[in-house]
């Protein structure tokens, strides 16, 4: 369970407040969606939760299964079960995708005091999961995200998620840059991971993705706060009327 309480965040470099008291709880097994206009702080929330440099938390807390996320290093948060699917996955020339994934899986296992996965076992598991996401052997061998199309990058994110089996998945505008077929493929990958012990926080601009990944709860974020919470129908309302109506209503 992810619990965010009264989270206030500023940029470190400049005196600019981005989040102004976010309250949000994502229960295990549930899919929550966050929608909101540009600049509302959605992506910042995902970065702050994952531990990216450059942000200062001035107030509030974020807990994953009762553990204080904000006190952990980036890699500790990952080992604790937090996963962020990046809006813009980073290209890493010279590091093979497979090497990267195996290093990550085993680093997390080691951090949790579990046994590392053997090369053979890892290969078997990754091949099966890659097949589901239509990721071929070549993509696994190539350097991480280098020369990948937008769709390939996003599928690669979902593959990482499937391999790492996190407890809490944050998807930051995973639908951006995807055509309809690619979005369906990615959504199927996410849906296959939906299970009782795993929560999802899906950040998106558009309702489209939520047709494929059906949320239990939808939040509207504006000016660094959650301004409205409702069921899936809230996403439809946004799709039909835009944000203006909702924002006027809560102002």
């Amino acid at each position: 369970m992810l619990e965010i309480k009264n989270l206030h965040v500023e940029l470190e470099e400049e005196d600019k407040r981005i989040l102004n008291g976010v309250d949000l709880t994502v229960e295990d097994g549930k899919v929550h969606a966050i929608m909101g206009p540009n600049g509302s702080g959605k992506s910042t929330l995902s970065y702050v939760l994952s531990g990216k440099d450059g942000y200062e938390v001035t107030e509030g807390q974020a807990m994953l299964d009762g553990a204080d996320l904000l006190a952990m290093d980036v890699e500790e948060r990952a080992a604790a079960g937090l996963f962020l699917a990046f809006q813009y996955p980073v290209e890493i020339p010279g590091v093979g995708n497979m090497t990267f994934l195996r290093t990550a899986v085993n680093a997390q296992r080691k951090a949790r005091g579990e046994e590392e996965m053997s090369a053979g076992e890892f290969l078997k598991v990754i091949r099966a999961k890659a097949k589901d996401l239509k990721i071929d052997a070549d993509m696994l061998k190539r350097p991480v995200n280098v020369g990948f199309s937008g769709g390939e990058k996003k599928r690669n994110e979902i593959l990482q998620m499937a391999m790492l089996e996190p407890k809490m998945c944050i998807l930051d505008e995973t639908d951006s840059g995807l055509d309809v077929d690619a979005m369906k493929l990615v959504a199927d990958g996410v849906n296959a991971l939906r299970e009782e012990g795993r929560g999802f926080l899906v950040i998106t601009h558009y309702q489209r993705l939520l047709n494929h990944i059906k949320p239990d709860v939808v939040h509207i974020m504006a000016e660094g706060r959650i301004v409205k919470t409702g069921g899936p129908e809230l996403a439809l309302e946004v799709e039909n009327n835009g944000y203006a109506g909702i924002l006027a209503e809560v102002a």
Binding site: K52, E75, F100, T103, A111, L164
Partner: peptide, 26 residues
């Protein structure tokens, strides 16, 4: 590359191990 380092760490790879990976890649 700080972005690459953050990406690797966000997948659970500790900083020193991630640095080594980037050094070898270089």
């Amino acid at each position: 590359d700080e972005e690459a380092l953050y990406y690797l760490r966000s997948r659970g790879v500790p900083t020193d191990e991630a640095t080594d990976l980037l050094v070898l890649a270089f």
